[in-house]
Design a protein around this nucleic acid. Sequence first.
DNA 1: TTGTACGCGTTATCAT
DNA 2: ATGATAACGCGTACAA
Lengths: 345, 345
Amino acid sequence: MTSVTGAKPAQARAAAPTLEAVAALAGVSRATVSRVVNGSSTVTPSSADAVRAAIAQLGYVPNRAARSLASQQSHAIALVVPEDTTRFFGDVYFASIVAGINRRLERSDYLLNLMIASKGPEAKMLRYLAGGVVDGVVVVSHHTSDMFVREIGDMLPMVFGGRPAFDDLKGYVVDVDNVAGAATATQHLIDRGRRRIATITGPMSMQSGMDRLEGWRTTVEKAGLEPGPVVHGDYTMLSGSRAARELLAQGDEFDAVFVASDLMASGAQPVFLDRGLRVPEDIAMVGYDDSPSAVRCDVPLTTVRQPSEAMGEEMADILLSVLAGDMSKPQETLLPTALVERSST
Amino acid sequence: MTSVTGAKPAQARAAAPTLEAVAALAGVSRATVSRVVNGSSTVTPSSADAVRAAIAQLGYVPNRAARSLASQQSHAIALVVPEDTTRFFGDVYFASIVAGINRRLERSDYLLNLMIASKGPEAKMLRYLAGGVVDGVVVVSHHTSDMFVREIGDMLPMVFGGRPAFDDLKGYVVDVDNVAGAATATQHLIDRGRRRIATITGPMSMQSGMDRLEGWRTTVEKAGLEPGPVVHGDYTMLSGSRAARELLAQGDEFDAVFVASDLMASGAQPVFLDRGLRVPEDIAMVGYDDSPSAVRCDVPLTTVRQPSEAMGEEMADILLSVLAGDMSKPQETLLPTALVERSST
DNA sequence: TTGTACGCGTTATCAT
DNA sequence: ATGATAACGCGTACAA
């Protein structure tokens, strides 16, 4: 590591102007300034103008800490993701969620605090949240083993992205209808004339994994078909290729497979192709997510699209409503999925 | 959108215990409690124990807003990324940076605030930062056109990831030696016996783009070689394939190409291969970044590895030092690069 | 409509 | 070593 010492980079920074200063310049009291800043009640237009002029002239910006302390609100929300950084950044699903949340937040004066909480610092994070850094929490990618999440619900309003697996949930839920999505995908396979449909599932520690499996099973049974082989994965590409090998190794026949995530499907497909199996002729595939990897496959994937960005936006919207005291939001919001047909079926 | 109304999810949340409460329980004054909380100076072990016991019993957590207001510090830093969400999440480089920053922050009580500031809300972000939400800022992926970044330097300590292109910079810089990295790559090509070396550059609006071009040029000239053709890209895969086509269209001969990012290289390579050119026999390639895409290429890329995660960690470390009043850090820190040899040379 | 005065939970400066 | 007490900057009853 080379280093070059240069001029000193720090300098005296101008003290930020306060409400007091604005009030003095505008010739009114602090209270009045506070009122126009918060757009509140009735202030005489003339003095309101004077205040606004003073604010502009001084470049006044409310001090966040002081405001929080007085109002008992931080005007920030947290996105809690119980995954490690690699998974978080490796999955575009999270990108969409964040984009959606951001889009809603841009129309407010709330801030987003990203908390990617892999394994260790759960206790630390709970302490942060307890410290009043945020007014509410959005939780996505939640596993049954993440018990600490329950404690969050005891101290802050909470919105889940994807229904958590435990029963006594405190908090709102925004979800896609995973059962219906999986059912649509499976039915599509049946409509294409497939009779022996396998599935590569998501993790059984996540509600979405269980729901998609259920959607597959009920649809197959309703059609009077014998369920094909089932192999479990964890949504990652690696687990997808492993599952594909296992499927083949088991020796059970199948002419189609419903894969619970595009990442797993794009891991599985090369395995099939390498074995000389043709997609979709020998094995038809349907994925889930409609992620970019679905298109990048050798045989582009038919898949179930989730409105991830809309989910993010909806979650933020619900949380903001709750924080605004609006208790009329439904506790559970289901967003629709859509089948996207490509070459793999 | 279906919705199901359920039980009311919100409930009365216990008021958080305050310093006052702890003091009362421990039988000391607020000041003393504050002292042990901040590990400060000299407190009698006996009363310190009493305080700690009270804290544990009450589950006391300091209120962040109050602390900020009193101490004039937020104990949070911001990572400002002037890119849109898609680019941010699409590039693993950022993931490493964040991971590195997080790793350093975990050993502190600072919080990270991610601000992905595409185009619009620059003014809004400046207002946030002016509001005292953070004590310092880390800026990565900075373009010459992002003028608003300069204003940040006027109000907060700042660390750049990658040297900004403007001259009067206020702030620290952590960078890799892009000139040296490009030089190593180019020299490697020369050592392999290549005489006519082209380059696909990064954006000329970024210092790193200019530096890598310079490293290529000086090395070629120092070897007494005639510089090969130069085509500009913007680090993305798409621009890489476009650049490759342009390179071919120009008709100038070349037997090697130094590409300023792996993403561009993985866009360029298929173009060469499609034209029946062999890598490395007809065209040797060296990329930059050592990103996952370097390995996913048909012909895995020889590339220049940057210590991205170490960069993130170093940036956070410097910022924390400055915030702690330590002015001894060098204004510019250069991290070393390393050549990773694979099949493309 | 506007101003006064108090409180928010900590830190920091004094005395003691 | 410890305890009053004054900031910190703002919101907001309450009074005028």
